[in-house]
């Protein structure tokens, strides 16, 4: 029932595991939030939920309220300029829902067969009390084309039957190498078969810039994502390189800094010198603010713009 209020629902899919679905979901959510949208993230990877870790809210718990479950808020809306001095920080609210918030221990395995997973996915979809007027709901999925995916798409198609434009479509993630592309092609065929529009393909882990010599190595080869997008006639949204600073941001909460002269999308990145903060480890700024220092942010700003341009042109509940 609570899905009715949501303007756009986006799925993040990939046939292959570990290509960065959760990482892409996280960054799409942060970027959309930075563009002023209110965003929700639903993690339906039941046996390996990563979203709580990505947002640094592993200890959070969901609360039960009359009529459903209250998702965990990552940050509230911010309309005032920040004290950082590098421009005003305005962003929309962001909240998350994941099975990770319900488990009693972080090491606990969820040993469920299909029907149980189906029930859980349905319950997440129908009884999460998202904040009213949510602009975007991003759904992070497990790898494959099985129970969770079938249930998710079935439920979504029923729930959005009265307003089909609500289900905006899917962002499909791959890495460049052939092994990954061949699994992800199966996912594109899945989307075709069930009638979910593919908004585009994101190629993750495309190249790694050696911090010692600045040489870019294609760790997982190159160009696979773009070639696949052309083959299937779907938009190619962009290539996202491997950035250890992003991993550091997620794992340890360290605000990214880059060597002098690092320029991404024509924009110079912050260096040790320009950012005169000495206590990087204890920087208490929210994740979303730190993310703006990450080299991947300008790339995601571009990807999000392509997505929102397509999504918002379609006559949604304006």
């Amino acid at each position: 029932m609570s899905l009715k209020d949501i303007k756009h629902i986006l799925l993040v899919l990939s046939g292959k595991g570990g290509v960065g679905k959760s990482s892409i979901t996280t960054q799409l959510a942060l970027t959309l939030s930075l563009q002023g949208h209110s965003v929700g993230v639903l993690d339906i990877d039941l046996t390996g939920p990563s979203i709580p870790r990505f947002f640094g809210i592993e200890d959070a718990k969901v609360t039960q309220a009359p009529g459903g479950l209250v998702p965990v808020q990552v940050h509230a809306q911010s309309t005032s300029g920040s004290t950082e001095g590098d421009g005003s920080m305005r962003y929309g609210a962001l909240s998350c829902m994941s099975l990770g918030f319900i488990l009693s221990g972080r090491n606990q395995a969820v040993i469920w067969r299909g029907p149980k997973k189906t029930a859980m996915v349905r319950q997440f979809l129908t009884s999460t009390l998202w904040p009213s007027g949510l602009n975007y709901l991003l759904i992070d999925t497990p790898p494959g084309t099985s129970d969770e995916h079938i249930s998710l798409v079935e439920s979504l198609l029923t729930e959005t039957a009265s307003n089909p434009s609500q289900l905006a479509g899917a962002v499909v993630v791959t890495t460049p190498q052939a092994i990954s592309v061949s699994d992800v092609k199966k996912e594109l065929n899945f989307c075709r078969k069930v009638g979910v529009k593919v908004l585009g393909v994101v190629e993750n882990m495309a190249g790694f810039v050696c911090p010692h010599c600045m040489e870019c190595t294609n760790v997982f080869s190159a160009g696979g994502g773009a070639a696949m997008a052309i083959e299937f006639g779907v938009p190619f949204l962009g290539s996202v390189p491997l950035d250890p600073a992003f991993v550091g941001l997620i794992e340890e909460g360290i605000r990214p800094v880059y060597p002098q002269g690092t320029v991404v999308e024509g924009q110079a990145m912050e260096t040790e010198e320009t950012r005169a903060i000495t206590n990087r480890e204890s920087d208490k700024a929210p994740l979303v603010e730190k993310y703006t220092s990450c080299s991947l942010y300008p790339i995601f700003a571009k990807i999000c713009k392509q997505v929102t341009d397509v999504v918002e042109i379609t006559p949604a509940s304006a």
């Binding site: 790694f208 050696c210 911090p211 010692h212 010599c213 040489e215 190595t217 760790v219 491997l242 250890p244 991993v247 550091g248 794992e251 340890e252």
Partner: peptide, 18 residues
Amino acid sequence: GFVCPNCRGTSQIFRAST
């Protein structure tokens, strides 16, 4: 760990923070 084929420098792409 990743050894750059150009300069032989090692980087931890997926850092073992724990």
